[in-house]
Amino acid sequence: MSLKKDLISIKDLTKSDIYSFIETAKEFKKISLKDIKKVPTLRGKTVINLFYEPSTRTRSSFEIAQKRLSADSLNIAISQSSVTKGETLKDTILNLESMKPDAFVIRHHESGAPYFISKITKASVINAGDGINEHPTQTLLDIMTVMEEKKDISSLKVAIIGDISHSRVARSDIFGLSMLGADIYIYGPYSLLPVTGFKDIPNVRIAKGFKEAVKNADVIIMLRIQKERAGYHFIPSIEEYRNFFKLTPELLSLASKGVMVLHPGPVNRDVEISGSIINRDKTFIFKQVENGIAVRMACLYMLLGVQKSLEPDI
């Protein structure tokens, strides 16, 4: 196990790190199925959830994970707080640091913020999404969800569709799934694809069309399109996006029989995915949410465990 105290980027992980997160998450998932969904594992530990961006799904997922592990949580939503008073990120962290937290769960609109914080705190830092950079726990839950259905990730064709340029989910998924050997096809309007491609990742390619991307795909990951993208010239309009980049039943029928459709949420129904697909059993969107809690429990457990083993005399 090569784990560090932080989970900031999927690129920091090895294959076996990813698998041990998933194995641990599977154990924690069993707890979520019990009547009393709580274990004392992290009793006495303090986790600060520091959210500089509005988030419902990820934030509640982390909070539930902390509650089930009996950790003490402190939730700080920054928009109503000190940022408006002009406090720098550094000062905020140094202030909170004096409360001796064991972990920060951080969501920030600036890429690299979790890395910056990790350098000034002794606590574990878990990246809950930074700018357009990464969202590693989302990728772990995506991999967990896929592994529950498919045995061997290295034999899979994965299509990732949409706003690749601005999607931290796409980037983390590309890093994680390619590490595990999947063949990845990305597709979207060229104005939302990375111009330079991905360095040193040979099994990622840009599909020439939607059909090529989804043909015989085992997994299709649809990304969320931000409405603002239309305002900054990236796409003409949401209607255009709906007309040309939405996953329809016809496109889905080109995929492999047991295709799984994933979406990080929240879904713009009938913009990214036809409503009729969401209502069918091909989508695993709700399974993703369920697995999200287990994966985040595993992350907290393992990272705080690492921290402990670094300080054996305590």
Binding site: G188, P189, Y190, S191, L193, V195, H233, F234, I235, P236, F244
Partner: peptide, 16 residues
Amino acid sequence: SDTSLLARAMLYAKTF
């Protein structure tokens, strides 16, 4: 005149 608009137009049109 807006260079970014023309750049995105080229990229978006390339998709089609």
